[in-house]
Amino acid sequence: MTSYLPPAQRIWWKVPVGRQEIVWIAIALVWCLIMFFMMPYWHVYGKQNLSTEAYKTTPAQFGPKVQAMIDQYTVRHETEQQIPVVAPPAGSDIYMLGRLWQWWPILELEKGKTYRLHLSSMDWQHGFSLQPVNINMQVVPGYEMVLNITPDVAGEYGVVCNEYCGIGHHTMLGRIYVKE
């Protein structure tokens, strides 16, 4: 009955620790260090690391960049809303913006090519959730995140918004095509 009574010894710091605890602490510490070093290891040897390249921006700055790409590389329009489908050249800078409640525009990429994807929000915070790949990133207004992506499987992908952004949140759905 001592967990809620003062320790039995005035100087409890010097009471020797049992072997069982010492062994467990040693094992646990090794595991903690392994987990810690996995992260820098993956930065060097892994292929999925989030870029830390980002810039402060504004909707007035970011919007025109997106529009310039759309004007130059639109190949067709889809749906009643005439959402542009943009097929920029492999290796180029590509843009997607989040706004209430759209991911804009639709991108058409080539499999195995690397692109510099710029993401930002025009209004509130949004969540870029590429499905069914399940890559998820926070999209914050005022900040432009730039990351290199290499789509490695052809197909049609959804971009779900997974940061709550108001009543129309569930209608905020974008698309990325990856061609062979």
Binding site: A54, Y55, K56, T57, Q61, F62, Y143, E144
Partner: peptide
């Protein structure tokens, strides 16, 4: 970290 994010061109 946030303060040192550079301005976009």
């Amino acid at each position: 970290e946030v303060v040192t994010i550079p301005l976009a061109q």
